[in-house]
Design a protein around this nucleic acid. Sequence first.
RNA 1: GCUCCGGUAGUAUAGCCCGGACAAGUAUACGGGCCUUUCGAGCCCGUGACCCGGGUUCAAAUCCCGGCCGGAGCACCA
Length: 504
Amino acid sequence: MEIAPELLEAKRVEEKRLPPLPGAEPGKVVTRLPPEPSGYMHIGHAMSGLLNYLYAKMYDGRIWLRFEDTDPRKVRLEYYESFRRGYRWLGIEWDHEKNNSDDMELFYRYAEELIRAGKAYVCTCPVEKIRRLRAQGEGCEHRSLGVDENLSLWNEMLAGGFREGEAILRLVGDMKHTNTTMRDPALFRIIEHKHPLTGSRYRVWPLYDFAVSIEDYLCGVTHVLRTSEFALRDELQNYIRSLLGLNRHPVYIEYSRFEFKGTPVSKRRLRAILEAGLAKSWDDPRFPTIEGVRRRGILPEAIREFTITQTGFSYAKREYDWSLLFAINRKILDPVARRLFFTPNPVKLLVEGAPETSIEAPYHPSNKDLGSRILRAGDKFYISGADAKKMKPSEVYRLKYLLNFRVLDVRSDQVRGEFLGMEPMKDVQIIQWVPADEHVEVEVLVPDVLYLNDEINPESLRVVRGFGEMAVETVKLDEIIQFERFGFCRRDSDNELRFIFAHD
RNA sequence: GCUCCGGUAGUAUAGCCCGGACAAGUAUACGGGCCUUUCGAGCCCGUGACCCGGGUUCAAAUCCCGGCCGGAGCACCA
């Protein structure tokens, strides 16, 4: 029985679904993308963002893009854009956008409300003392200050009466709580540093838990999908909201970070690579940054499918093998990528008796829409050095689409053979080639993992040079093609024939 | 150190809540075969896992206890 292939395909896609979201009602789900614009977006952000987006979509809900930008010292304008660009590239469409720094006045009002309710106090202890006391589970003398006194201290903070580090606003929590985040956490601190969006207008900045609690309420967020380092904060954030009468809490789902073997996402370790001179920029194809991953030829659809099929809400540490992502990428690429000839480390080949001719070669073995090109040939060629090296006299090979030849002799700089005919022969090794007088120089960057066994891999980027057939010039910037028997490569430069190897 | 949370093949996961058709499913990787004018794709076959020990039960990957290992948090970062 014949089954229409498109039905099979539909079934395949149908099966790839995220597990149901607890407590989700169609049409009512609201999620959020909460990047901190303090670095370039990387693949971990991408997968986490995708999860939030996909669930919003799955339940016909809405999603916010909300920048968690309340540490002026870390935040930079270019990073906001990095995230917007990254999300867009992934096909994530957000319904609303805002910054936490938009709501400073509101945060101040809520702070005052907390102080008036006797639930927050200004603490002027030195940091070390605060840390020590929190560890010991004991409060300091400021905890018992009166509301009026706290109010005037708070206003003094806002007015600039304290310098950075001299005073913070703290929540009245529970100094004995086993969840240490509940032990009178800091709500606001003073930062004397220009913010890229608000300039010098504010000097008292809310901390994460305070800003997030309020923003998640304001945005009507129903589901928070985030990595596990936040797990202990659910309780705190719910508590802050309830003190403020904001009694609608999201469902929290936490999971371990998404990391790839040999490819750290930590800024510290990536910077070490940069400082060691092993990479020049954050968009290096070996980097897990979105730009790096994109340059490497990974498709957004692949990341999307990967997130849906290979991901789970596991707390256990995980380290994905790149091959898992490559396999998906390859399956997407295979039916649409043009096939071209490339001869790395080329060696000359002379086929005695080969006629002057030209052949038409399809760009794809089965996808005819991709068209074909004409290759002209005489008796002189270049073939891949690796192929030449394997050849032994009397062996028979076929230059793909062109002719068969028998090896006469093999030297390090040239292989000589005799022409055996044009028609394909059975059980003959087929190799790629370019005409000796009609080819272009091609350079392929081959990225590998940055770290091997926890140490910097000094050979994480290889450069392969060789000759490509003339049609390589028709490959557009960003187009991903397959150099036959070499691998899928993306053109990385507009004016040079420089490619980046994705995977085989 | 303290507090949480985990541990299913090399890797990533399904199953665990509600114990039984799980002699553990899938993907990837690996091995073999078929197909193919690519060492790619596709198709077929195969190797490979419930951290350890005890307990509960007719029955445990699933429940309980202990151990070991791993992760996260213990910020005036997010």
